[in-house]
Design a protein around this nucleic acid. Structure first.
Length: 424
RNA sequence: GGAGAGGUGGCAGAGCGGUUGAAUGCACCGGUCUUGAAAACCGGAGGCCCUUUACGGGGCUCGUGAGUUCGAAUCUCACCCUCUCCGCCA
């Protein structure tokens, strides 16, 4: 959510900022709502003050044994008027809130202009793209020979699921363990285990709701839950309604969770293989920092995600997303894209974002600043990295002419020393 | 699932329906004292919102939401959460 004070004081400037994303802010509607709200609130406050004063007089008069009938009548009248004004006020406030919850974050000044992913700016590349002396297969062709089973998944759950058995399942688990260990031991993150089912408020807090409900899976029953689309949701919600002592910052959490996405809008894209699934695993990094530290924290967090790909020796590039491609809650985002030989292109494997105070305001996540006053925190999150896509990248980049796949050195300890995955 | 208890400020913990935004203790900030610190004493201090150039003024906030009432932390109802005992269970 954007700062309501800013929306009141400089709405046109906000509109200009949001236009960078291609978001058209209805200035007229918001300012008209705001104007109505102000009138009603002032009136309601005045009536309430009068009612309170009148009620107090009743008490005093009674204590002195005086007649109170007039005061009681006045109180009843005030109460009636207040109820009417309050109803209008509540209705307007709800409209203002609904409107504001649909406004995306204001972009960081350093975000490049542009409408879509074509305008994203490549910051750097890492690693050497391997020359194949044979035609490299895509990951599903490789995987299907060693226990990656889309047919079985289809029988169980339908499209966009996968079953893995044997060494591939082990490789999948090894990736999780390796990434967690790297972030915990080398990068200073605290491991977190969190719920995979969350209530609506948690998703409003991080910005997935109310706008993106169609992307989520919900669970029937009472109470109603949503399956998390990313660990960002439960982990960032750790600081909901908290006032953190300044000396405890920054908070750095790493969590492995499954992620569930309905991806309703992506039908037809990446239908083959396990690039785009309804259920996938991710190791997620979350940082909770002071506002002045968040720019540096984004660079650091991105570097931590890059560290995973470097350790796995997977070639990748880093993109700064352009204005039109940055997500709803983020002020700035770097995407990491890993090289996939079968597609001869880089594909997203991590997304690292600084949300500044956007989520913190929805969450009321604060810290005590030097003046001793509560102040909104900044929140950041990034994949470190997506497990399924990392597995895809390994299969493709480490494949051998005979259909086997080398196990990256750093993963071998997690694979009981295995150096090679053979096709069955 | 059954039975019971409870949710008050950073923490602990009072609070006959009416100057209680809330006693008291701890913690916190300022001052006196001290070479300095501690102790003692004095004083200050929650959060959110509206309004005001400012000084200030007003409202909301005792788990959440409704209700009763001239007036609710105090009464009623619903919901959420926590704890205890029993049962069940990975």
């Amino acid at each position: 959510m954007l700062d309501p004070k800013l929306l009141r004081s400089d709405l046109n400037a906000v509109a200009v900022q949001l236009a960078r994303r291609g978001f058209q802010l209805d200035v007229g509607r918001l300012s008209s709502l705001e104007e109505q709200r102000k009138v009603l609130q002032i009136e309601a406050d005045a009536l309430r003050a009068e009612r309170n004063a009148n009620a107090k007089r009743v008490g005093q008069a009674k204590a002195q044994g005086q007649e109170v009938a007039t005061l009681l009548a006045a109180g009843e009248n005030l109460g009636g008027r207040l109820t009417g004004v309050d109803e209008q006020l509540v209705a307007i406030q709800a409209q203002v809130a609904d409107f504001q919850l649909l406004l995306p974050n204001i972009l960081h000044a350093s975000v490049p202009e542009g409408n879509d992913e074509l305008a994203n700016v490549e910051m750097r590349r890492w690693g050497n793209i391997r020359e194949f002396e044979f035609l490299p297969l895509d990951h599903s062709a490789i995987g299907e020979r060693m226990g990656m089973d889309f047919e079985a998944a289809g029988r169980i759950s339908g499209a966009r699921f996968v079953v893995m058995t044997g060494p591939l399942a082990s490789l999948h688990r090894a990736l999780i363990q390796f990434m967690l260990d790297l972030h915990i031991r080398e990068h200073g993150y605290t491991e977190a285990y969190v719920p995979y089912l969350v209530h609506r408020e948690a998703l409003v807090g991080t910005g997935q709701l109310p706008k993106f409900e169609a992307d989520l899976f919900s669970v029937r029953g009472e109470p109603g839950f949503f399956l998390i689309p990313t660990a960002e949701v439960p982990v960032t919600n750790l600081v909901r309604d908290q006032i953190i002592a300044a000396e405890k910052l920054p908070l750095k959490f790493v969590a492995h969770t499954p992620c569930f996405r309905s991806e309703a809008g992506a039908s037809g894209r990446d239908t083959r293989g396990m690039i785009r699934q309804h259920q996938f695993e991710k190791v997620e990094l979350v940082q909770i920092v002071k506002p002045e530290d968040s720019d540096a924290a984004l660079e650091q967090l991105t570097a931590h995600a890059e560290g995973v790909l470097q350790a796995l020796e997977l070639p990748y590039r880093v993109l700064a997303l352009c204005a039109g491609d940055v997500g709803f809650s983020a002020a700035k985002t770097y995407d990491l894209e890993v090289w996939l030989p079968s597609q001869q292109k880089y594909r997203e494997i991590s997304s690292c974002s600084n949300c500044e105070s956007f989520q913190a305001r929805r969450l009321q996540a604060r810290y005590r600043n030097k003046a001793g006053k509560p102040e909104l925190l900044h929140t950041l999150n990034g994949s470190g990295v997506a497990i399924g896509r990392a597995l895809v990248a390994i299969l493709e980049n480490y494949q051998q002419a005979d259909g086997s796949v080398l196990v990256p050195t750093v993963l071998q300890p997690y694979m009981a020393g295995a150096q090679l995955l053979n096709s069955i």
